[in-house]
């Protein structure tokens, strides 16, 4: 079966003021891809995602989503996208139920249907008992679960996830990972950014490493291993981002900690 191209970036360049954030990025993403989108802080990961969501504009080049250029599209393409941002701010004063109903409404879902679906999803995550409690009282993991539900309520074709597992306990992590695998098997595309290499390594079927505004690596984990002659994604990451002094830095750090006051 021919896999359809879902996202294409053509020569995308983005500047903030004089600062070059992304330079001439080319990238094609197909349905069923789980892309582990990694890179050091400030490498331009979230900028890329924000551009695809229409949060950031003023870039050079073209971004095509579902085969259509963003510049010629209105907002309706977002109906097929789900998004879990990093450090997401929620409308704290709402209850989980109200929040989810609102988000579902923004995606154009019918109210009763959305409510019922949200409730069932919350039951699966075992947070249905706090459905009518305010989000401000939620723990980090509970908020994360609400966010994940809110990104999936409308059954999107593309998912952008930024550290989606943060705050979840080990069992919930397992569930979410399995959910992602199954969604991808159904042909959904997942764009997964994270700093935790072990998870990225296991979860993704394709890894894109971005560094200094360029794509430094793109391929399956096995391909990257072969190209770089390294055993783990962490090692590949370090070698591609040109970082090898973690031992020295740690030694210096510990030495400073242990200094006796003069």
């Amino acid at each position: 079966m021919e896999r359809q191209e879902v996202i294409r970036l053509e020569h995308v360049t983005k500047r903030f003021g004089d600062k070059l954030v992304l330079e001439d990025i080319d990238l094609s993403v197909y349905e069923g891809d789980i892309i582990g989108y990694i890179g050091p802080n400030g490498a331009g990961k979230s900028t890329t995602v924000k551009m695809m969501l229409g949060l950031v504009d003023g870039y050079e080049g073209n971004i095509l989503i579902f085969g259509e250029n963003l510049k010629d599209q209105d907002h309706t393409y977002k109906k097929r996208i789900g998004y879990v941002p990093e450090n997401a701010e929620l409308y704290d004063s709402l209850t989980a139920q109200e929040y989810l109903a609102f988000i579902a409404g923004l995606y154009g879902l019918e109210e009763d249907l959305a409510r019922e679906k949200a409730h069932r999803l919350m039951m699966k995550f075992e947070i249905d008992h706090v459905m009518n409690a305010r989000l401000s009282s939620f723990s980090k993991g509970m908020r994360q679960k609400v966010l994940i539900i809110s990104s999936l309520l409308h059954n999107p074709d593309v998912l952008f996830l930024d550290e989606p597992l943060s705050g979840l306990d080990a069992n919930s992590m397992l569930i979410v990972r399995e959910i992602l695998a199954q969604l991808s098997a159904q042909g959904k595309t997942i764009f997964y950014s994270s700093h935790i290499m072990d998870i990225v390594e296991k979860i993704s079927n394709r890894i894109v490493l971005i560094s200094n505004g360029h794509i430094a690596a793109d391929g399956t984990f096995d391909e990257l291993k072969e190209q770089n002659q390294k055993g783990s994604l962490q090692d590949i990451f370090n070698s591609l981002t040109g970082f090898s002094q973690h031992k020295e830095i740690a030694e210096d750090f510990v030495a400073i900690v242990q200094e006796e006051p003069a």
Binding site: L53, G54, L55, H75, K78, Y83, A88, E89, Y107
Partner: peptide, 13 residues
């Protein structure tokens, strides 16, 4: 600022 991140990512113009 929450509005922007919350709503602009949804299909609302």
């Amino acid at each position: 600022v929450r509005d922007r991140n919350m709503m602009m990512t949804k299909p609302v113009d």
